[in-house]
Each structure stands twice: as structure tokens, then as C-alpha cells.
Design a protein around this nucleic acid. Structure first.
Lengths: 246, 246
DNA sequence: CGATCTCTTGACACTGATCAAGATTGGTGG
DNA sequence: CCACCAATCTTGATCAGTGTCAAGAGATCG
């Protein structure tokens, strides 16, 4: 079963600007590598795939064939509890990686869904592992990338460990803002392509609570909320909310 | 700065029984490997270190020199919020791994503390990375180990995503029970070497709430609680509690 | 055998879930 | 282009679950 990929393979030069904030850049971008390795690497990456809103990139149980970097758009990942309930486990922005957890046993464990029309860069994992065997620097980078996934999850564990719901929501908004800034987008004003229910699932809250909290933050002039567009008006106030341990 | 390690290096044969449920076993135990690789590998692992209760194995900021497997005893890891609050991030049983998240940028991000007198097996990470470059199977195993850390954290994210505190606690108790069983210990009766406050920190609850919930579960004959010794009397009932989304 | 840390339990306050009713938005077909 | 339908969001009233504060009972360790 082969998925449809865009047949255009981006040229090395054309996308450096856009790729430079990407977490795959240390694997993708030209480095001083042996000629042959560089060619194999180039063949591995830069394969694009386009997805429509709500289209699924991979599902639990799918064999791990590729790792993905979000090139444009946004994704959520969803994990299922043993009893069947679903939970939003992550919210991915351009430049961030999808599929790392599937390395653990060769099969994806979550479902990845595009939240808007999006593009991903795909890397064949088995091949990547082989090439990395030959190039110590790449090997090291790959380990860093995978371990970065642990750190990312740990941040969410930390966030969810706050007993106060408002702290979790404020922390999440600030996190998205920071990550957008790191990718060259505006940290002030952005779209959260998640429904209130999905935000709640991600943060251990009910959708009504998320809605109320956003309304309240707006009433306090910490945010401006228009549908799914968030404008951060008072980041310091949000930081205080994120800290409040009561 | 060199830490004190036990000078005894376990013989290959003596510990296979004890090592076989360990997550490092695929790196440690004899496989059909080239003679020289096997020797280098043997030199890497099986270095033991003994820690007293409340002794610190590594702290945030420490350079990553070793990965560790808990050989005996238990550990907690603690992460600090940006504002200085501390949170218990993990609870480690024999056979489980410590330090993986430090691979991401070469420095540990959490603090690892022995909760009782304990022993760890240490593996020099830089050397391990080198050896793995030469042996595809080991390389693959290492990737699986690191990615396993993502899956482990994801489970905790899932647990913390339950809005109901009782569900989080029940799920945690069942998880510890299952992991103990996988390591050859009794899943029925075990010591939780965490204070009520640490359990609460780990699960996003206050210590009084943890105490009350344990008392209530005992009153319902789902558990027997004696100080820190937990006996699971009705696992099915706990599973129901873990599911109840309310 | 104090001194200290940890745990349990009670009373009360407050956060967030639940249930319910509308309002708003977005998409689709006439 | 408009009308309608479905999905999403907002807001209110109420209640259950947890946090907070406080007091005292156990445990543990020099």
C-alpha cells in the first residue's frame, strides 16, 4: 500500500529559507558530507505530501515507514485510552516532527490528523537509519531528534501536572506563541486550529471550561479571542496565570 | 569530576537472570556480534553504582555522560517549572532507564533521586553511540530505547489527561503493578516508595486528596494500604475507576 | 525518647463538570 | 445569493470533586 506523494521534489536551494527553522534541518540541509552520503540523504528527504483538512497522515498500528516534518499547516495527534476514549496528545506547528514515537516498535501509536490543508516533508526511516550508521554527525543528530521527542512530552507532563486549569491553558497559549516565534511567525496573534473540545482534551478540561476561561481572559484584557484567532495582549499576565499554583 | 562507581564489574554470566527483564538487555546481553564489538560493548555496560536513599544520581544541567538502568531499588525524577516549583515527573522501577531525555542536548534536564538504597548500571553514552555506528542491530535497538522514552511519557500524558483524579490514581497503581509484573515482581502487593505528596505531584493532586482517595479505595475493598505498602485486592474495580471519565 | 517528617481526617471554599438553552459560524444545495 | 443544516461556541444554573486550612495521630531517625 503506497500513499500518494507529491511528485515534485524540492530543489536543494529553493527551500532553505523556509526549512531553516525546521527540526529536520540538521538532517536535510547541506553539510560537509561525503559526496555519496549527501546524495543518499537528499534522496531520502524533501519528499512532500499534501493533506486536506481532517485528512489522516497515519493511524495507530500503521507500520513506520516515514518520519514527517510539518512543512505547512498544523496537525494534531490523538491517542486512544485502553477503554476507547480518545485524547488529543499533541498540536504540531510548521517545522515540528511527526511520527517519532513509532520508532519504539516500528508501528505508529497515535493518529495524526491535518487541522487545515497542510504539507509534510517525509523521510524514509529505515533508509535514514542506515545512512546515519555511516555518518557519525548524522547519527548524533538523529539521536538528538528522537530524544527531543521525550523532552517535548515531558513539557506536556509538566503542564498537565498543574492542578489549576487556568494555569494549564495559559501555559499552553504561551507555549504555542513561543514555538511560533521560533519558526518566524508572529507570537502575538495566531490561529489555534483546534476546537474548544480538542483544546480541552489536550489539557484535561471540558470544552465549556475552555470557552469560559478564554472569555474570562478576554474580559481581563489578557487576550483577544475571535473564533479561533488568539491575540496575546498581556503576556505577563498570562505568565502569572501559568504560575499560579493555587 | 568523576563519580564513584563500584569497582566490581559483574561477570557476563552471573547476572543474566536478573538482567533479562531489563530494558538494556538488548544492548547488554550476548548476541551474535563480531568479537571485537562484543568486547567493547561489554566494557561499556555493567558498571554499577550504588546510591543511598535520597542520594542524587544526576541533576539538571549535568553533562550527559552515562545512561542508567535501575538494577535494584527505585528512583524518582523531578523537573522544575520555569517559576521554580518542582514536579515529580517519573517513578522508576528495576529494569527501567534513566537519563534518556539528556540525549536531546547533551545535558540532563531532570534530577534523579534514589528513593531507597539502590543500584544502577551505567553505560557511557558517547562510546555507546560510537559502537552503535558499527553494528546496525545495536543502532536499531538504541533508537528503539530512546523512542521508548517518548512512549513512556505519552502514557503519563494520557493519564494526566483524565480530568478525574481518582482515575489518575487508579491508573497509576495499575501501571506500577503491571510494570512490576513485567520485571518478575508481585503485581499484587508492593511498596510505593513515594510520599503522598510525591504521588500527588506526579498526578496533579494535593497530598490530602491522595490520602483520602487511598483511604476510600481501601474502604471499598479495592486496596489494602499500610503506610507505603499497597495490596491490590480488586484490580477490576481499579480498572473501572481508571476508566470512569466521570 | 524527643524532634521531625509524614499521614489521616474534618470543615469549608472554590474550581470545574454537568445539564441545558441559545447564538454563531461554516458548509451545502436549491 | 439565499436558506437551511450541522457543527461549534457561549453562557447560565447547579452540583460534585478537590483544594485549603487546621488539628492531631503515626512513623522514623538520630
Amino acid at each position: 500500500m503506497h500513499l500518494a506523494f507529491d511528485d515534485t521534489v524540492a530543489s536543494s536551494v529553493a527551500h532553505i529559507g523556509r526549512c531553516s527553522p525546521c527540526l529536520l534541518r540538521d538532517l536535510c540541509l547541506p553539510q560537509k558530507l561525503p559526496e555519496e552520503v549527501a546524495r543518499r540523504l537528499a534522496a531520502l528527504v524533501r519528499v512532500r505530501r499534501t493533506l486536506r483538512r481532517s485528512e489522516v497522515l497515519f493511524r495507530p498500528g500503521d507500520p513506520l515507514e516515514h518520519l514527517y516534518a510539518v512543512h505547512a499547516g498544523t496537525f494534531k495527534t490523538v491517542i486512544m485510552h485502553p477503554d476507547g476514549r480518545e485524547q488529543v496528545a499533541d498540536y504540531l506547528l510548521p517545522g515540528e516532527l511527526l511520527g517519532l514515537s513509532g520508532i519504539a516498535d516500528g508501528r505508529h501509536v497515535s493518529e495524526a490528523v491535518a487541522l487545515e490543508d497542510s504539507q509534510v516533508c517525509a523521510v524514509q526511516y529505515a533508509e535514514l537509519e542506515t545512512v546515519c550508521g555511516q555518518v557519525p554527525i548524522l547519527r548524533h543528530q538523529l539521536h538528538r531528534l528522537i530524544a527531543g521527542g521525550i523532552v517535548r512530552e515531558q513539557k506536556q507532563v509538566l503542564r498537565l501536572g498543574s492542578t489549576r486549569g487556568e494555569a494549564r491553558l495559559a501555559s499552553f497559549l504561551l507555549d504555542v506563541s513561543t514555538r511560533l516565534a521560533a519558526r518566524g511567525f508572529s507570537p502575538q496573534s495566531f490561529f489555534l486550529h483546534l476546537t474548544r473540545g480538542e483544546i480541552g482534551s489536550f489539557l484535561g478540561l471540558k470544552l465549556e471550561t475552555v470557552s469560559r476561561m478564554l472569555s474570562r481572559m478576554q474580559a481581563q484584557n489578557a487576550l483577544r479571542v475571535r473564533q479561533r484567532e488568539i491575540t496575546i495582549l498581556d503576556a505577563q499576565r498570562l505568565r502569572n496565570m501559568a504560575m499560579a499554583s493555587i
